[in-house]
């Protein structure tokens, strides 16, 4: 880290301005991820109670629209690759959950692990976004 620091500092002295290595905090991403986690958690808790409950296409359509909006917003901002990449991982999680749900034969334990994955990736996104609030 110190050598990277020295290199960037030297460049700054040549350009003469403060730097921005990562995008600014985005309240829409923060709220959007929180809402999505709530929606997915509720769905996955219900699936853990009754794993064989019927598959709901409309639910997944809504989740994919939410994720696409967040992805478009994150990708439209420069230096936001990590947030954008984490949203891609969320999309993969949801695709796995959808396929599992559609199959209709999985156990409550499977849904529990899938819920943990959603929670962890949403947590990573929120940690990163909230850290951007402390940018100087």
């Amino acid at each position: 880290m110190p050598s990277r620091f020295a290199t960037i500092t030297l460049l700054l002295l040549l350009t003469g301005c403060s730097i921005s290595l990562i995008s600014k905090y985005d309240e829409v991403i923060d709220k959007g991820i929180t809402d999505l986690q709530k929606k997915m958690d509720l769905h996955l808790i219900q699936k853990q109670r009754i794993p064989s409950s019927s598959f709901d296409t409309t639910f997944y359509d809504g989740v994919y629209v939410d994720l696409q909006l967040l992805k478009t917003r994150a990708s439209s901002v420069p230096k936001n690759e990590q947030t954008s990449g984490l949203i891609d991982i969320l999309v993969k999680h949801v695709k796995n959950i959808e396929a599992t749900d559609k199959k209709g034969t999985s156990t409550a334990n499977t849904y529990q692990i899938l819920q943990e994955s959603i929670d962890q990736t949403c947590g990573n996104l929120l940690t990163l976004e909230l850290a951007k609030k402390e940018e100087k």
């Binding site: 620091f5 730097i19 940690t127 850290a131 940018e135």
Partner: peptide, 20 residues
């Protein structure tokens, strides 16, 4: 993979704050 991505982003914020 997501954890590593987030850690990379957090590292960039630290470097940015230090330089500024």
């Amino acid at each position: 993979k997501g954890v590593i991505m987030a850690a990379t982003g957090l590292g960039e914020i630290v470097v940015q704050n230090a330089i500024n």
